[in-house]
């Protein structure tokens, strides 16, 4: 198979295990390209990609933009802070206006669940979901699984604990779907108020004690507290969260094994992750960032071929 089964990447839920494997194999090649002195390939020459971010983003937007430029695509950027969205223009109008400029692909981040799905029904361009509310963030899950594969050789059979604010995390949901498709066991861990009530129905283990989660897992993927998405209070204070759910070096030292620590960034240092963990040999956080470019190159390249 050399083509994806879909012309959009809206979520991990919607793609097959074969799609994921194809993305990984393609990313392997692009990662090799990224380590060459000349990092640019002409694969997407004459393809125009619009990065439309209705929500703040630094690393995801930069990662996509770099991936697009490495593929020689023409890139335009749009963010809601300097757009007409604030003047009351609807999503469909904004995107149609951009598409009138003959854009081939849209990378979109939006605070509303299902916004890229809505868009996919109304526009012709390929759409890559760069995060929709508390739903999915598929390229993050792909780069996370790709990084586990790179570090541990395989994802199948590995135990991955996702720790933190699961309720407000699109990364958690995409990771659960992706890791399960690749044969990993998944646990979620956090305060009970930050775990969706029915999360167990997704076939994940549930734990509220971080030390127990660390003892169980091969990989700890630590999520940031999404204060900006919490419309009401879910825990008493950041101090209490950090004391009872934060991960520090002592916890890792108490383990009788080496585990891998991941974080999708940006880190709230001293809250969910202490610096002595984030910057330790256990951490593959910066490798995740590097792999993000290769994964996004692979996704864009394959979707362009699916036109």
């Amino acid at each position: 198979m050399s083509q994806l089964s879909t012309r959009h990447l809206l979520g991990i839920k919607d793609i097959s295990t074969e799609d994921i494997q194809l993305i990984f194999e393609t990313a392997d090649n692009f990662k090799e390209v990224l380590n060459r002195p000349i990092k640019k390939v002409p694969s997407l020459r004459d393809i125009t990609i619009a990065n439309i971010f209705f929500e703040n983003s630094t690393r995801t937007r930069l990662s996509f933009e770099l991936a697009e430029k490495r593929l020689s695509a023409d890139v335009i950027n749009f963010s809601s802070s300097n757009s007409s969205v604030k003047k009351g223009e609807t999503l469909i109008d904004t995107v149609n206006n951009i598409l009138s400029m003959k854009v081939d692909m849209v990378v979109m981040r939006h605070s509303s669940v299902g916004a890229p799905h809505f868009l996919s029904k109304h526009i012709k361009a390929n759409i890559v979901n760069a995060g929709d509310g508390t739903h999915e963030h598929p390229t993050q899950a792909l780069l996370d699984a790709f990084s586990i594969r790179e570090k541990l050789g395989d994802v199948a059979g590995k135990k991955v604990a996702i720790i933190g604010d699961i309720l407000h995390s699109r990364v958690a949901l995409s990771n659960i779907f992706c890791l399960q498709k690749l044969g990993a066991e998944v646990m979620v861990c956090g305060p009970i108020t930050l775990l969706p009530k029915h999360i167990g129905s997704l076939g994940v283990k549930i734990e509220h004690d971080v030390e127990k989660a660390l003892q169980w897992c091969d990989v700890a993927n630590v999520l940031r507290i999404q204060l900006e998405r919490q419309q009401i209070k879910y825990f008493p204070s950041l101090r209490e969260y950090s004391l009872y759910f934060g991960i520090n070096r002592k916890m890792l030292d108490r383990l009788d094994k080496e585990i891998v620590v991941m974080h999708p960034g940006p880190i709230n240092r001293g809250v969910e992750l202490n610096s002595d963990v984030a910057d330790s040999e256990h951490s593959i956080i910066l490798q995740q960032v590097e792999n993000g470019v290769a994964i996004r190159m692979a996704v864009l390249y394959l979707l362009a071929g699916a036109k």
Binding site: G114, T134, E136, L173, P196, K197, H198, L202
Partner: peptide, 15 residues
């Protein structure tokens, strides 16, 4: 936005 259950969990929608 919708009924809280397996489906709302799968699509990350506030139930």
């Amino acid at each position: 936005q919708m009924h809280e259950g397996l489906t709302s969990t799968r699509i990350g929608m506030k139930g």
